[in-house]
Each structure stands twice: as structure tokens, then as C-alpha cells.
Design a binder for these strands. Structure first.
Lengths: 207, 207
DNA sequence: GTCTATACAACGATAGAC
DNA sequence: GTCTATCGTTGTATAGAC
């Protein structure tokens, strides 16, 4: 055994971590430019300068690798939104800030959005069937649902079913972004404003 | 040449039409139960009782076949919604009827919805890149956008950007349905009611 | 016009040598 | 830890039987 550095039971090697990150980067790059189906293990291996089998050494399957890439992208996304939310005072402001942050980040990071939408099918909130052991958090809009719940408990919103409204607002965001991806000529800033209006109408306009 | 029966330049044979329909049925069946990636040409051929090459005789490629299957499903969907709309009097009623019909049909036809969501990526409203020559109508929500325009011209709605609101309402519908597909325990009837509320709030509550 | 048979390159995945 | 070699399967193309 190599001299361990005191970490957990399967502490990853330095080179291991580096290789994994390198492969994830290549995967994100390829998926965002060529789409998921055209992103083969061979292509990833070639871009990383290793063999196909070497890729499968670090990630046991293609699904494994692409899922890891997706999770990294999603983590960065979440991090940005969270950072935006701490600056909001009050539940209403937080909800509006959430919508604004969602649109803003995606507008500034088309590449990452492409990865997400290319792979969203495998996600828990997705509609795919094949998912074998998806750990199934309560969906992509749980964070939004929590914000809505907080606002409702604070008594500043109208009465509504939190789950449904979260799905509706989230879906509305997705709908606008999906159209923008396919038709970049859409004025996303204007749409974002309309979407905030939309959100305020949904949660009730006044305290 | 065979004695033509007076139809167009390439009038399809009886057997041709029957086989095509049989293959489309098999495709819908497989995609809705196993998902798109697991629906191979071999599987379709086997279910139809013919060889793989025979499938490719009637549909020049897998993409061709699956696209035809999708279009058939979408056509039935559209037909139902249209039928619901003729019974609505007034622009506001038509918009509400549209939302209700969208949810209602999908609730009663899970199988078809699965096909749609499995393949939506290739659609114009989708986010996929690979689409080579998609004829690109103006998106999945153009019908809704027309209803909104009609209502606005009739002066019974508040002022808003038709395109964005259509995307938002459409996205909200998609969001709820997507969650329902993954979590069938969702009370879709209640969600539909909330969604109508949502729509009314978006377009303005009073004439 | 309808189909079976066969061949092919590329895919994801595995086994075993170095 | 990384490689080569190989497997089964995929989508697609062509040849030719009836």
C-alpha cells in the first residue's frame, strides 16, 4: 500500500483527482459543444490524451462520468444562486432574487446550461425511465419550495400549494431558458423582468 | 408500372401504409415502456415480426421512424386540445380551457406523454444541438401564444409580452407534468386547479 | 415493391498483459 | 495505472431473392 495521508478509507490519489477533473472538463467541453449522443468515450479519451479504457478505469462507465460532470456543473450553479440569496432581506426579496439569479446565471453560462439540458433526462426531476438507483432528492425546485414555505410561514404571501407553485415557477424559468437556447435572439433581460412580474402575481402582490 | 389508382405522384401502397403504422405502434410501445435509448431497431423489428432491414426499408433511418412516431402522438394530442377549444366562448375561457385540456389529456395518456418527453430533445423547442434540418415552427407554445394575442386584442387581458407569458405558462405546465411523471403520487387534479389560478394571475384577473 | 441476408464501422464495456 | 485486444450490440449500407 502507498503511505496514506490520514484521510478516509479510500482517499483518492493526487494524480487520480487530477485525471478525474481533466476527464470531467473534457466531457463538459464536448457535451456542451456537440451534444450528449455525439460525446463518445473515444472522443473524451482522445481529448484527454489517454485511451478509452483508461477513461473507464477512473469512471466505471460512461453514465458514471457524465453524471459526475453534470453534478459538478450543478454544484457551481447552486453555489452562485446561494451566494445571491444571502444578500436578500426578507422572504419576498429572496424569492425574487432566486428567479433573477436563475436567469442571470444561465444567461452568463450558456455552456453549462447546455450540459444540464443535455443530461436533465437522467435526473430525478426528469422523465426518463432508465434511472436505476437515482438517489432522488425531492426535485430540482426544492430550494424554491423552501423559500416559498418560509415566505408563507412569515405570512407575507397569499395562500397556495407550495409544491405546485414551485413547480410552476420553476417550469416557467425552464420554458423561457429552453426557448432562449433555441432562439438566442430572444431578449432575455426583458423576459426576466416579465418573469419576475409573473412570480409576484403567483405568490400574491402584497403583504 | 403498376396500374395506378388515381392518387398523387407517390401514392403509398396498402401494405406500405399498414406496415408503417404497425412499426410506429411498436415504436411508441417500446419508447413509452423502455425509454428511447433502449428502443433499438432490432427490438422494434422483433416486435413487428420482421427483420431489421425491413424496418429500414419503410423508414430510411431510426431517426426517421422515431420522428414519425412522435409526430403521430403529437397530432392526436393537438386534435384533442383543438376539440376542447371550440367549446369555449370568449378569449379568457379559451385560455383556461387550453390549460385544462393540456393537463387533462396528459393525465389520461401517460403512455403518449412518455414518448413526447423521451423525444422532446429533437424538437424545435428543445435544446439539443444535433437537429440538422428541423423545420422549426415557432415552438410548442405558439398555439397558446395565439390565444393570448387574441385575448389581448379583444382587450380583456392586462398588458404583457405575449411570447414570454406563453413560454412561462407552457413551462409551468411542463414542470408540473414532469414532476407528476416522476412522482405519480402527486395530486394532479389539485395541481391543475392551482395552475389555472396561476394562469389567471398571469394574464390579469378581470376584464 | 417487399423483404432476408450479410457486412461494416463505431459504440460501451471487459479481461489481461505490462 | 495504463495499455492492447476483444466482445456483444448498435445504426446503417448494400446485394439480391421473390
Amino acid at each position: 500500500m502507498t503511505p496514506r495521508r490520514g484521510a478516509g478509507p479510500d482517499a483518492p490519489t493526487f494524480t487520480e483527482r487530477a485525471r478525474r477533473q481533466q476527464l470531467i472538463d473534457a466531457t463538459v467541453d464536448l457535451i456542451s459543444t456537440r451534444g450528449y449522443p455525439a460525446t463518445s468515450l473515444s472522443a473524451i479519451a482522445e481529448r484527454a490524451g489517454v485511451s478509452k479504457a483508461a477513461v473507464l478505469y477512473h469512471f466505471s462507465s460512461k453514465d458514471n462520468l457524465t453524471r459526475a460532470a453534470l453534478e459538478q456543473v450543478m454544484a457551481q450553479f447552486r453555489e452562485y444562486v446561494d451566494a445571491c440569496l444571502v444578500r436578500a432581506d426578507g422572504p419576498r426579496a429572496a424569492i425574487v432574487a432566486y428567479v433573477r439569479a436563475m436567469i442571470g446565471y444561465q444567461q452568463a453560462h450558456r455552456r453549462q446550461v447546455r450540459v444540464i439540458t443535455e443530461m436533465l433526462l437522467d435526473d430525478d426531476g426528469g422523465t426518463r425511465l432508465k434511472t436505476p438507483g437515482s438517489h432522488d432528492t425531492h426535485g430540482r425546485w426544492q430550494h424554491l419550495a423552501e423559500l416559498l414555505t418560509a415566505g408563507q410561514q412569515a405570512g407575507v404571501l397569499r395562500e397556495f400549494d407550495v409544491q405546485t407553485v414551485a413547480l410552476a415557477i420553476g417550469g416557467a424559468i425552464d420554458g423561457v431558458i429552453a426557448h432562449w437556447l433555441a432562439h438566442p435572439e430572444l431578449d432575455l433581460d426583458a423576459a426576466a423582468g416579465e418573469l419576475e412580474e409573473f412570480t409576484l402575481n403567483a405568490i400574491g402582490r402584497r403583504a
